[in-house]
Simulated assay, not measured.
Amino acid sequence: MSKLKNFMKITKLEITMLIDMVAIAAFLAVPGGNKYPFLLLILVISGTLASMSASLFNNIYDIDIDIKMKRTRSRSKIVNENTRNRMIFFASIMIVISLVLSYFLLNFLTMIFIFGGFLSYVVLYTIVLKRRTSWNIVIGGIAGSFPALAGWASLTDSVSITSLFIAFLVFMWTPTHFWNLSVNNIDDYKENNIPMLPARVGIKKTAFWIMINTIILITYSLIPFFISYIHVGYLYFPMAVIMDVILLAYVIRPFMRNYDRKYFRSAFGFSNMYMLILLIVIMIPFI
């Protein structure tokens, strides 16, 4: 059981599950997509392996800082200088299997999107942006968009307005989600010179930018009301309004509670539920 927990920790199961949900939602949004369970299974396996591999490479690259931060210190018991080569081997095997499966059992475009998600997280976010700019999570958030493109392409070998909508919904959501989390880890980021937004501009300004980003996200989430070509299902419309209102309430609370960190933590927790519910209501009518 401990080995399973360790595996789940270093491969960031919660991120992998979200990645899979994004891909599944886009897959099922394709008309008739529910008739191809085998292709959906291959998509999920490929996406899961790629996501776990990316998370593992992220841990490998961040060995030096993870051991110093409270939130990530436990990872160093699993991924460290002594296990680095073994972890590189496992991570490499996973991404290779992912790309082989998606290429031969799905199509080339799907493989490209899966690999694009992998590269954007490992190279763009982890190596290039994370330690250099407070825009790290904004630009690096594109990694979460690729699963939507892969999900649609796995059936159609194309990109659509629906897959682009889902992809950018995740992209717009990421700063609100992660900035709320990073407020609670501001001390760790400051001590290790990681330029996450709260460590650079402080909690009050971060709350302001969370609000701005959330307003943009909410506005964007309502686009299907005006563009009928976006396949999101009838349940999406009432639930999007409800979830938008609740998310906005969570984001407003820190302003009214003297920027207490626990309210940012609550907003972070609800942001997970927000995205999960929207993805579920997108896919339910097509199951």
Rank of each mutant, 00 (worst) to 15 (best):
S2W: 12
M8G: 00
K12V: 02
L13W: 11
M17C: 10
D20V: 15
V22R: 00
A29V: 07
P31I: 09
G32N: 08
N34L: 07
Y36I: 03
L39D: 12
L41M: 14
S46P: 08
S51L: 07
M52R: 04
A54I: 04
S55V: 06
S55N: 15
D66Q: 07
R71I: 01
R71L: 09
I78N: 00
V79I: 14
E81T: 13
N82S: 12
R84I: 11
R86C: 04
I93Q: 01
I97N: 03
S98F: 02
L99H: 01
S102H: 06
F104S: 07
L105E: 10
N107G: 03
I114L: 15
F115Q: 06
V122C: 10
V122L: 07
Y125L: 10
K130T: 12
T133G: 08
W135F: 15
N136G: 11
G140A: 13
G140S: 13
G140Q: 05
I142T: 03
S145T: 09
P147N: 11
W152P: 02
A153I: 03
D157Y: 14
A167D: 08
F168P: 01
W173N: 07
W173I: 02
T174D: 09
T176F: 05
F178S: 05
S182E: 11
V183S: 10
N184C: 13
N192Y: 07
N193G: 12
P198M: 09
P198Y: 06
A199L: 09
K205D: 14
I212Q: 10
T214F: 01
I215V: 15
Y220V: 11
S221M: 00
I223T: 13
S228D: 15
G233R: 08
Y234W: 14
P238Q: 02
A240W: 01
I242M: 14
I242H: 08
D244H: 00
L248Q: 11
L248W: 11
V251D: 06
K262H: 12
Y263M: 05
R265F: 15
S266C: 11
A267C: 05
L276K: 09
